[in-house]
């Protein structure tokens, strides 16, 4: 088989089609912007329980993604979980007394970290630890507490 112009053009088209597909997978399908965040600043927050929160879980303010969780660890000194997150550079004016809570998207959806801004004039910067946190709601524990309080109430009513 001798190489013809058709073959050269065909192979060229094939290679560019393949590269275009890879590019589409990288840019349109995968979230390259989340990957590229090496800029921005790191803050930590301590929780009694983080639920299913994991690395790359979104960090949201008023529902807008402002960063991602970068590290989840257990702080032996404080006996709490510590979550490290990277917040994008452009969100640099977040008050120092902002509180962090862990919520679930929908009933069974994934968990995310929500920031509720406070009123201070100083802003969060690299290495800060968020003072106010609210742990994840663990469904089993909530049900357990609910049932327990019902029984206590029931017992209380029967007694007199």
């Amino acid at each position: 088989m001798k190489i013809t112009r058709t073959m050269e053009v065909g192979v060229g088209l094939f290679v560019s089609l393949g590269l275009a597909a890879l590019l589409m997978l990288a840019l349109k399908v995968a979230n390259i912007s989340a990957m590229a965040v090496t800029e921005g600043y790191l803050v930590t927050a301590h929780f009694d329980n983080i639920g299913k929160l994991g690395i790359r879980s979104p960090v949201k303010m008023s529902g807008v993604v402002v960063g991602r969780v970068t590290r989840v660890d257990y702080d032996v000194d404080r006996g709490q979980a510590v979550v490290e997150m990277r917040i994008e550079k452009r969100f640099s004016h977040i008050p120092r007394d902002t509180s962090a809570s862990i919520y679930t998207a929908g009933l069974l959806g994934e968990q995310y970290l929500s920031l509720d801004p406070g009123g201070e004039e100083t802003f969060l910067k690299q290495g800060d630890d968020l003072p106010l946190t609210q742990s994840a709601v663990i469904l089993e524990r909530t049900i357990q507490q609910f049932l327990y309080s019902k029984t206590v109430q029931g017992n209380g009513k029967k007694k007199p």
């Binding site: 890879l22 997978l25 979230n31 790359r56």
Partner: peptide, 20 residues
């Protein structure tokens, strides 16, 4: 459709490892 896709798919972990 696109935004949830982007939230769940990682360039290195999924596209590089999976496809490439």
């Amino acid at each position: 459709f696109w935004s949830l896709m982007q939230q769940h798919i990682d360039l290195i972990d999924d596209v590089m490892q999976g496809v490439v």
